[in-house]
Structures are given as structure tokens and as C-alpha cells.
């Protein structure tokens, strides 16, 4: 026994090294956000406060460009509003079938307080949390397209796994012909995302728009993802390599909208039942 203790004491540094590496490994592998508190992520209270403080100082330097961006979005929305009002008055829109399919999405406005684009798993911290009704799994969009999904929330902050995260898959369609596919980031260039599972019998054109499919309750349909930049097809493969230029500039994120879908739970429950007889 004494010898054993002596041995442990002699190798204590090495043993501690193994223990700490093991702890790191567990943190790396086991921390699934849906089961854990937000404490270990940047959405915790202390981190959130510190990032907010920095953002309060830093945002003064980009007020002009942010104003322009918001004004541009305002103009776009105003245009859509008048168009819809016109269609509504003339009776060309909101036919009975369409209004039945309507899902009542709600939007929560939030400001980005921390952002990264250069890692393989990029995350964004925003200043809205459980107090604003946010929950893990909700979709996040910006003025010009998709941003990501809510990953973990605390009372007043939330961490978003950005579309620039090799673990995030987004259900997408190519707008011109309705081909269903999946968007996933390759981890290398923050300006482009790849499309998986575009079958080779379809003709994919450079310049086609790619939008969200609306097949799951995270994003509404028709939210912009990007525009096809490059298409290639290897002789032996059954799927295209499609490179899409993201419509969102992830370097300069500032305002984002979190999408709340009050019917998400009902829809998830229904769709889960399909697989479990």
C-alpha cells in the first residue's frame, strides 16, 4: 500500500495530466446543449455582460454602416408591404388554400455581441435569452438570409450555432426547380456553403437561388441562403459538388431575428409519431 502511494506520489504530475486531458475530452464530446445548462457557453451571465460592455463601446464605430443596413432593410420591407397590400386589395393573394398553410411565425429582434467566423465550429452570442422566449433549436435569420440556430440560452443571452459550423445542417431547396437538398459548411471559407445530396439527373445552373425548404419548423420556407456560385460533377459520383455564395456577410453581423414558431412543438410531436408506431 505504501509503495503504491509512493508510486502515485512520484507520478502525480503525469496522472494529473491524464485526468485533466480526460476532463477536457469529456467536455469536448459530452456537452450536448439540449441537456446542459448554458453555464459553459458564452451565453452565461458573466460572459454575456462582458461582451455587452465591449459591444457598447465598439458599436459606436460602425453606427453609420449599421444605419444604412437597417434603412435598406426598411425600404425592402416597405416595398413588400405595399405589394402585399395591393395584392390583398385586388384579391390576388391570400387565397383560402394559402392562408390555411400559414404558420404564425414570430420574430424576436436581437443584437450580436460576439461572433466568430474562422473556426470549424463557429458560434454567435446575442443579447436575447429565455426572458425573451428563446429556446434551443429556434432558427435565426438576418436582414439578408439565414444565420443559424439557437444552441443554448440563459436568462438574457443566447449562443447561436452559426451556419458556419460544420455540425449544422440546413434543409434547403434550389428555387428554380424545387430540388430538395442539404446545406452544410465545409469549414474553410466563410463566404461559401456547400450543398449536399443534389442528384446528378438534375440540371443545376450557376446563379440559381438557394432558399430554406420549410420542411422542418426551424425556418419558414423561402428564406434566402445564397446563390449558386460553382457546380461540378465527378464522373464516379452520384451527387453534384455545389458551392453557394452565402447571402449573409458573416463578418459584419449586427442585427438578427430569432424565429419563434408557436406551432413547432405540435408539429414536432406529430412528426415524431410517424417514426414511432
Amino acid at each position: 500500500m505504501r509503495r503504491l502511494l509512493q508510486l502515485i506520489h512520484y507520478y502525480r504530475a503525469f496522472l494529473l495530466f491524464l485526468v485533466l486531458e480526460f476532463v477536457s475530452l469529456i467536455l469536448l464530446v459530452r456537452f450536448n446543449p439540449y441537456h446542459s445548462a448554458s453555464f459553459f457557453y458564452s451565453s452565461n451571465v458573466l460572459t454575456g455582460k462582458i461582451f455587452t460592455l465591449r459591444n457598447n463601446i465598439a458599436q459606436y464605430f460602425s453606427l453609420v454602416s449599421k444605419n444604412e443596413e437597417l434603412a435598406y432593410e426598411n425600404a425592402l420591407l416597405r416595398e413588400q408591404y405595399y405589394k402585399l397590400r395591393h395584392e390583398f386589395r385586388t384579391g390576388t393573394s391570400l387565397l383560402p388554400e394559402e392562408s390555411k398553410n400559414f404558420e404564425p411565425f414570430e420574430f424576436v429582434n436581437a443584437t450580436v455581441i460576439n461572433n466568430s467566423t474562422r473556426k470549424f465550429h463557429n458560434f454567435i452570442t446575442i443579447n436575447a435569452g429565455a426572458a425573451n422566449g428563446l429556446e434551443p433549436g429556434m432558427g435565426v435569420i438576418g436582414p439578408s438570409g439565414i444565420i443559424g440556430k439557437v444552441f443554448s440560452v440563459s436568462e438574457n443571452y443566447a449562443t447561436i450555432s452559426s451556419a458556419l459550423n460544420i455540425d449544422v445542417l440546413t434543409s434547403a431547396v434550389i428555387k428554380s426547380d424545387g430540388t430538395f437538398c442539404t446545406a452544410r459548411w465545409s469549414g474553410e471559407d466563410p463566404r461559401y456553403i456547400n450543398l449536399l445530396y443534389v442528384p446528378r439527373h438534375i440540371s443545376v445552373q450557376k446563379g440559381d437561388s438557394v432558399v430554406t425548404s420549410g420542411f422542418n419548423p426551424v425556418f419558414p420556407s423561402d428564406i434566402m441562403i445564397g446563390i449558386i456560385e460553382d457546380v461540378s460533377l465527378k464522373e464516379s459520383e452520384s451527387f453534384y459538388n455545389v458551392k453557394v455564395a452565402l447571402s449573409t456577410d458573416f463578418y459584419t453581423l449586427s442585427q438578427v431575428y430569432v424565429i419563434k414558431n408557436p406551432l413547432a412543438e405540435e408539429r414536432n410531436r406529430l412528426e415524431e409519431n410517424l417514426f414511432m408506431p
Binding site: 504530475a13 467536455l27 456537452f31 457557453y41
Partner: peptide, 22 residues
């Protein structure tokens, strides 16, 4: 670990830093 918490990379920086400390 603290760097990990601030950059949402749980376990990554801790593992590398402990390695060089060893």
C-alpha cells in the same frame, strides 16, 4: 477552460493548454 467558455470551444483550449503545461 476559461478561454473555452469565452470562445464556445469547450474542451479544445483546455486540452491543448494542459498538454503544453505537461
Amino acid at each position: 477552460f476559461l478561454i473555452d467558455v469565452f470562445s464556445d470551444t469547450l474542451g479544445v483550449h483546455s486540452a491543448a493548454t494542459v498538454l503544453i503545461a505537461f
